[in-house]
Amino acid sequence: MAGELPVNSNSDVVLVRQHVRTAAIEMGLSLVDQTKVVTAASELARNALVYAGGGQVRIEIVQKGVRRGLRLTFSDDGPGIPDIQQALTDGWTTGGGLGLGLSGSRRLVDEFDLRSAPGEGTLITVTKWGR
């Protein structure tokens, strides 16, 4: 299963949460893991909306040996992140939030990959593996 969703408004964020939840249930993640990955999706979708004015997310189920995982890829064409290390620090924010969006969602998933450069948008790939 794979699907691409736009993140261009607040209601899209809600839609992203619902789609990620459906995919997480479909691949058999535990309730806690479902909640974690949906929360991470919510944070990252909101980030794309707030900092880049919108973007998109691809939801797919991946396989590694006997384990299945849920992979979310958020991409946007926003201003990008100049200092990734700093952006991943708890409490660091330029958007008036709590500064937990990136650092927090990294703790909620098993794999977290962030690619960004000023002026080149941001690409974030997160994966949650089934137990």
Binding site: V32, T35, K36, T39, D90, L100, S103, G104, R107, L108
Partner: peptide, 14 residues
């Protein structure tokens, strides 16, 4: 608050 939500909030750092 549901257990799964509480666990997630702790992990998130909130």
């Amino acid at each position: 608050m549901r257990p799964a939500v509480a666990i997630t909030l702790v992990e998130l750092g909130l």
